[in-house]
Amino acid sequence: MACINPDGTLTSSGLAMLSALKTPITLEEVAQVAGLPLFRGRSGVRDIIAGGLVEEEGVKYSLTELGKQRLETQ
């Protein structure tokens, strides 16, 4: 995964995306705030959803409890 290291810690792009998601935002906003091209935003969000760190709420995305914990401990 491009956003989560094999040991479960976040990569720099993963951390940037999770930090961008402190409040629910759209995928386009995640990419913009994290400073990533849109295609990286899309693939990255897929990664962190699969890792249980983020969930989809309609057109917006927000941190799960696990995502909030990971962000605090990173």
């Binding site: 849109l38 990286r40 899309r42 693939s43 990664d47």
Partner: peptide, 13 residues
């Protein structure tokens, strides 16, 4: 080299 990417990730570009 930048993770798993799908063609659809580029939609709009």
């Amino acid at each position: 080299t930048q993770g798993v990417i799908r063609l659809e990730d580029f939609k709009g570009s």
